[in-house]
Design a protein around this nucleic acid. Structure first.
Lengths: 208, 208
DNA sequence: CACAGTAAATACATTGGGTGTAATATTGCA
DNA sequence: TGCAATATTACACCCAATGTATTTACTGTG
């Protein structure tokens, strides 16, 4: 994997990783707002300007890895069943993503989640990421039902699903004890989210 | 209302309003990112530092007015019907708010909505506002069903409702022509949102 | 090995949002 | 009028972020 990269690329990747590591370590110990980019670059032993060679913004260093789950989600959406409704397809895609991921919330993921939940400045970035992903899902869903689904309904459906999850997750995480339990046992997290989706959607359907 | 305020307070309010007006005018003509706070304060004829006496941040000048609709919403939630389910109560509250407001999206509201949708930096702030309101709604809903509703389900329900609306609204507004039509005829906007809620929730309920 | 091309890292300067603080102007009230 | 309260201002400062030019280090080629 890394073997066929030239020395130059390897060096670049190394400095990038050094920045990520230094940033996360400093954020965790001093807090996000209290850590300056100068601190990070000093710890990584590079020039301050170098930070912006690798990352577009301070928060970007925390959102380094690509959104793998989103790709999987849209991949499922690309193959709707013969008699599957949009809502059913969405739910199946969610189920696939939830059960495919081997490491839904690992050690570093948890640290990052804590940082985001504690830091308003980072919440904004996370929200932006979610909104982007939402738009992408809407596009994929519309592609799956090009003739029978109008954009507003599609967007509302996706919004409902994302809203359900965000609502459930934020509440689960607001209780530190529950959050720790979920982090320790990913299966419990999966179950909690599946339950939330199922019961919520059933309730919504019964409003006639 | 403003009569019993002293001269000092009136002057302060006038300065604040001058800043809001100048900011909105400049944002609309030059764009949000292209407008500096120095521009705004120059147009309002005050010192740059004065801006931060009235607003905590650049985006705050756009979120000036208090969320009146939220109060009405929670007021409805405070009086659940005898056999009303949480989802039904939420839907009734939404219906009440939608039909009570005489000016759901007036001229200046529209301008602000356009700015927010066009400017990523503002979207984050808007979503934060929405999430705050969401938490408040969850609290009110839990108060209405203290024994039969658990926090996670409540939060998921509210998230689903808000997500549905946000999804529908953003899509409605993304089409400039549709947005103009909605702005011109509030009744059409109301109908579109009611339809979005109804059809979306029905779809979700059929995922069994 | 030397050399030219290329890309990463750096130095330097600058803009703009946001804050702390102390001084100044204006208002409320005795 | 004179004093307390407060809105506004002036000034200095920090930090994130960007533009540009320069230096440093790697790559492939002859």
């Amino acid at each position: 994997m890394t073997g066929n990269m030239g020395l130059r690329e390897r060096k670049k990747a190394r400095t990038r990783q050094a920045l990520v590591d230094a940033a996360i370590a400093l954020f965790a110990s001093k807090g996000y707002d209290e850590t300056t980019i100068a601190d990070v670059t000093a710890a990584a032993d590079v020039s301050p300007r170098t930070f912006f060679v690798h990352f577009a913004s301070k928060e970007d260093v925390l959102f380094d890895d690509p959104p793998l789950k989103l790709e999987l989600f849209t991949a499922v959406l690309a193959q709707p069943g013969p008699d599957e409704t949009p809502a059913q397809l969405l739910r199946r895609a969610f189920h696939s993503v939830l059960n495919s991921d081997t490491d839904p919330l690992g050690q570093s993921e948890r640290l990052r989640a804590d940082l985001i939940l504690q830091t308003p400045a980072l919440q904004a970035g996370a929200v932006r990421k979610v909104l982007e992903g939402q738009r992408e899902i809407v596009r994929a869903l519309l592609d799956a039902y090009p003739d029978t689904l109008d954009p507003v309904t599609a967007s509302a459906l996706v919004g409902a699903m994302v809203g359900t999850l965000v609502g459930a997750i934020t509440m689960l995480y607001s209780d530190a004890e529950v959050a720790a339990r979920m982090a320790a046992d990913p299966q419990q997290m999966r179950a909690a989210l599946e339950t939330a989706i199922a019961s919520t959607w059933q309730h919504l359907g019964d409003t006639g």
